[in-house]
Design a protein around this nucleic acid. Structure first.
Lengths: 337, 337
DNA sequence: CCGTAAAATTGGAACGTTCCCATTTTTACT
DNA sequence: AGTAAAAATGGGAACGTTCCAATTTTACGG
């Protein structure tokens, strides 16, 4: 029904081999090239990608696995990946874990059925040992966005992550510099590795700056706006702090909302800092001081490492990459004194 | 290198045909079934999807074309589509127009190379006649999210859109009911069909409610936060209105920000309404009254229509579906009198 | 235990490419 | 013009499935 390479060959008075060579950019005599072009146009021929993939045993495709495609947070990362993929003539297919009914490891099928030549796994939650075991059995290269830990490093899996610890330290240093001595901290959910890294950064930075650590000023939360709202309520009940570091922007915005509702002014009564620098961090009032994660760059690096490995199967994979986030000062902190 | 169906057959002492039939859920004798299961496990066999696609000339895949995957606005729609797709054993592949260097119609390749069995095009900008011409030449079913217009309707292309006109009318009615007589309007960019529908709804609703139309109270904008900011500045310079309808939430938030910066209080000094009900509409202060677009449902409907057509090629395609948006009252409007 | 109908199984063609290798054509040079 | 080398071409196998027609096995009544 659809025209095949044979139909083209017949019409152009040549052989399928020649057509195939032409399609793949190999040299062809001028005269036959003209004829081929005409024939292809005439028939509206498009190569059947499935046949090609079968014989080449490769799909020029990168599988991108995310918890939820629609999560705004991944946007920048995806853009970075797509950029590199397109530059190198790879296609992207997205696999959203939650919506597929094949369970946690459903994405493995993408690899096992030879639908993709490489895989990028994006997740910021703690990854199980089982996961690494399964990945290691795959014959295609895999790159991780988020924490891979030592296991990944030892298994020829490339991982790109942000230096969370360092990011929070920057925040504490900044607050200290503008006069804050009493700094509270709103934590994240336990299953995210960033939660622990950020909490650790907070503790260490207090120490490094000679600020005392008051246990009741650290309250756990869940990275949601409502969680931040509640956490701020708890903190205000305890009282005594002049600044609050929320370990992500959404929580910070929740905290901001609660403060507003209680009639407090930010930053006059409380300085608030977030983390992530999501787009809307600058949309709230006052625009939020926060830590920018270079998501685009993260995507770029992850894809770059993967593509390298896909192109040169024998090349050793890059190991691990820690990207430094940057403090973005807006209007949600007040200079004391 | 990878085990094939033949390897499985050999190990289980049967033929590839039997294996194939087993894999496709057809009846098999109990004894051979056991042997097959064991062999498949033993070899860690996974069917090669490309071979299957070649012979079946079908991929069980839906292509989803968006301007930009990362656009938050599409999130809900994508979730709806994925839901239906998964329920019907279809896979989704996303094609993001802008990042691919194949030009405006690059997505056509997905269809022409037989990578997908159906296509959902998501876009809210005006679609060109050229586009419809090209779509009509495709041999696979296509569904549209956004305005298809009469052309789509006449070309067996199913489209799902929101009743923008009606949505804005609801807003005007509501504002009128709580006492507003002087209502301004911030428009959207010209190339979005929703822009015109919403503007039309505004004009018509004023008339229907006996409110006078003041031309200078309609200012065009671009659906960005900064655009809303500037539009509000213009409006305040003109003055006289008690309420402002922004034709999307992002603009409304920009307007809100400008009002705040100038020291006005919302809703005391101005009532502001948005459109879309994006997630953060409830994150700003005050939480924004807006019109909710049932994005999830839109995705559901679009996918449902497409799947129907893919399963029964002969069935007539659904025509056009207009979904009614709903007014969400939050705290950004004040009751007058 | 045979005959027969029904059920299960099998071998081989087909899907549309790529790629190898043998053959033919073209080019370059004496 | 003749020849060697280089370039272009064409035929056919291979990729790993599905599906059809033909064959073998099973089930069962007599």
């Amino acid at each position: 029904m659809n025209p095949t390479i044979n139909d083209v060959a017949r019409l152009a008075n040549t052989s399928k081999s020649t057509v195939s060579r032409y399609l793949n950019g190999q040299p062809i005599k001028k005269r036959t090239e003209e004829a081929l072009k005409a024939a292809i146009q005439e028939l509206d021929y498009h190569p059947n990608v499935n046949a090609r993939r079968l014989v080449k045993n490769s799909t020029q495709t990168i599988g991108i696995v995310v918890d939820d495609i629609a999560n705004i947070f991944y946007s920048g990362i995806l853009r970075g990946i797509e950029k590199v993929a397109n530059q190198n003539n790879y296609q992207c297919v997205y696999y959203s874990g939650t919506s597929n009914h094949q369970g946690e490891f459903g994405f493995l099928n993408l690899a096992q059925e030879r639908q993709v030549d490489g895989l990028i796994l994006i997740s910021f939650t703690k990854r199980s040992d089982e996961l690494f075991r399964r990945i290691r059995e795959l014959t295609i290269p895999v790159a991780l966005v988020g924490d891979g830990g030592d296991i990944a490093e030892n298994a020829d899996i490339f991982s790109v992550d942000v230096n969370n610890e360092h990011g929070i330290k920057e925040v504490v240093r900044y607050l200290n510099r503008i006069g804050h001595r009493n700094i509270a901290f709103i934590g994240g959910p336990d299953d995210f590795t960033a939660t622990h890294q950020r909490a650790k950064g907070y503790r260490m930075a207090l120490e490094e700056n000679g600020l005392t650590y008051e246990p009741s000023w650290t309250v756990p939360s869940d990275w949601s706006k409502d969680g931040g709202y509640k956490a701020m309520r708890d903190l205000i009940n305890i009282g005594g702090m002049t600044a609050v570091i929320a370990s992500n922007d959404e929580t910070a915005i929740g905290a901001l909302l609660y403060a507003h509702e209680l009639g407090f002014r930010v930053p006059r009564d409380f300085s608030i800092v977030g983390f992530d620098d999501i787009e809307i961090a600058s949309w709230v009032y006052p625009p939020l001081t926060t830590v920018n994660q270079p998501l685009y760059q993260i995507g770029l690096e992850a894809a770059d490492g993967l593509v390298m490995k896909m192109k040169h199967k024998d090349a050793p994979m890059k190991r691990r990459m820690l990207i430094e986030p940057k403090l973005i000062v807006r209007d949600s902190c007040m200079k004391l004194l």
